[in-house]
Amino acid sequence: MLSRTAQIRLVSSHPEVYDPCDDSFALVDALLADRANLVEHCPSICMEVGCGSGYVITSLALMLGKDSSGCHFFATDINAHAVGVTRKTMEAHGCHAELVTTDIASGLETRLAGSVDVMVVNPPYVPTPEYEVGQFGIASAWAGGENGRSVIDKILPVADKLLSDKGWLYLVTLTANNPSEICLQMRKKGYASRIVLQRSTEEENLHIIKFWRDLDTQLEFLDCHSGVMAIGVVTSVFKGKRVAQKHG
């Protein structure tokens, strides 16, 4: 059987690019858990903001498989090295993405507005001093400013602009990011949400949240506060962005 995720031995690397770690694996596992829905969703355009090594967007392309030859992938990163590494990783797996070195989706926002059917984001979520945010090297993979929210809060309105009417957003968050407040913010924009996967360790408690446009936002309001049902809670020895930050 063909592999449904990128193979680590085929993932390129670079000293200034964040290697796939448990947060990347958690996001891919969440996408795998939702794979049947994704295939049925028949996306035309998928996009990753902050593609890093390319592990996630390559995995998404592979799990959508041959059935998705009508689907095209866009990926961006503020780190030019990361975009180069993503190109190599995609090529090593026989995949292709439209790659742009840019801040979030700057330059694509106007023309790609309302066109993205699936967006995946593993943002820099680690709480750091504000001055560390927006650096061009590997720190851009983790430095999230106050509560780790500085970059997330910039991405959310962009996602809202880019997502199509049937668009889905998968976002990696940390408990410190206050995921329920993120859900609430998105609810105000008309999105329902569900935690697709939760993964806890000594270092980090990750939530992979899926957002989709939903007209019936009022009823959903309660869900967000009472804590949405989580499927697939896994505890493991965790090596994520906090560890990378310490060693980076």
């Binding site: 180069g84 790659l99 742009v100 070195t101 700057s106």
Partner: peptide, 13 residues
């Protein structure tokens, strides 16, 4: 000018 190297456009400002 926004450079395109190795097939990747760089839109950083």
């Amino acid at each position: 000018k926004f450079p395109v190297n190795k097939g990747i456009p760089n839109m950083l400002l």
